[in-house]
Design a protein around this nucleic acid. Structure first.
Lengths: 196, 196
DNA sequence: AAAGACTACCTATCGACATAGATAGTTGGT
DNA sequence: ACCAACTATCTATGTCGATAGGTAGTCTTT
């Protein structure tokens, strides 16, 4: 169900075609929520049927049109209700930590490699999240810039502060994961000293 | 696919019925990987068909039997291969942080409630994970005790150390989430001072 | 005018998982 | 003897999402 609200969130900033939305899921929003276009197009149609968004045909070249969706008042209401509603935390499913719990079955070098990959992965993610956070804070991110124009100046601080806060959480988590993996590398070296 | 390896992991400690396995997913393993029994029973049958595990009929009361599964050599090999293989990190889907990025749409009191729930949720989880870690370290956890008996003494340190390490990571993450939510509460108070 | 990249949209299949049941035997306590 | 609680297993339906395609128009560059 969250795809729906991710789409509504995007549409609170500006009207978008399915293709535009899909591109956003490849960057920006995609750093928090991923979705392939094969999910996006049908979901947009469903949302239109339910009146949360409105599609309009827009000329595109001489022989073609595209559908641009805008959020409706019902959509805004639904989005607000969702944000206000209490989160429900789904069941836990954490492959990296589950795997780590059984590292005694692995070859020590593979453990090292896996932990290094963990470090690399979260280092990359952290860089993305930190970059997003920076571009939110100085409003250099195009979507943020567009969004901010739509709302009165006294809202700007809140809009920016909450987004920066969200990404800060992701940065912190990445940092924790990296530290954990470093501890893991030290542990492997202790349990199975590397051969020189 | 990870359910399969979670099941193999359980079966490296001792043979289990589907029901036993399902119970484990309610506790211990369930703190890292969750699965309902409606997934477990069919998966066990599939795994047996593929030769990773072996089911034997065990008497249960005067008029009934149950199926107890044991891991096979092929199963051990498959499990080892999985542990050694490089993790692949799936796409990101983080509802709490996505939601937090749009908190400007929410009622400040709902934001507070949501953040408090976040704190409560991770405080509870952290307690579980910390308790698991403690019962692993002193081998008071029944599954760990059983597991340890099966393997030579020089393996014990590794078995325990990696499991403690895995749960430590989860504890640390929970701590990071709690701190993040606390920062969030401070932010709401700054942006929308509470009415007395 | 043709090639190549990009935009826009759509479909079909598959596995994972959630949810909500049903059935039937067993064990322990009153 | 009976009831409740537990053990053991199975099914059915639906949604979500991954994967891997397909079609067709547009824009840009050569």
């Amino acid at each position: 169900m969250s795809l729906r609200y991710a789409l509504l969130a995007l549409l609170t900033a500006e009207p978008l075609t399915g293709y535009d939305a899909a591109k956003r899921f490849g960057g920006s929003v995609g750093f928090v929520w991923h979705a392939p276009d094969s999910q996006i197009y049908p979901e947009l149609r469903r949302m239109e049927k339910e009146g949360l968004i409105e599609g309009e045909q827009v000329r595109w070249g001489p022989n073609s049109t595209k559908t641009r969706y805008s959020i409706t008042d019902d959509g805004i209401r639904a989005f607000r209700d969702w944000i206000n509603a209490p989160m429900d935390y789904g069941p836990i499913r954490d492959a990296p930590h589950m795997r780590a719990a059984y590292f005694e079955w692995a070859d020590p070098d593979c453990v090292r490699e896996n932990l290094q990959r963990h470090i690399d992965y979260y280092t990359e993610q952290r860089a993305r999240w930190a970059a997003m956070r920076a571009s939110i804070l100085d409003a250099s991110h195009p979507t943020i810039a567009t969004r901010i124009e739509k709302y009165p100046a006294q809202e700007h601080e809140r809009i920016i502060a909450y987004k920066a806060f969200a990404y800060q959480g992701l940065v912190d988590r990445a940092t924790a994961e990296i530290e954990w993996a470093h501890d893991g590398l030290a542990l492997v070296d202790k349990l199975s000293p590397p051969s020189p």
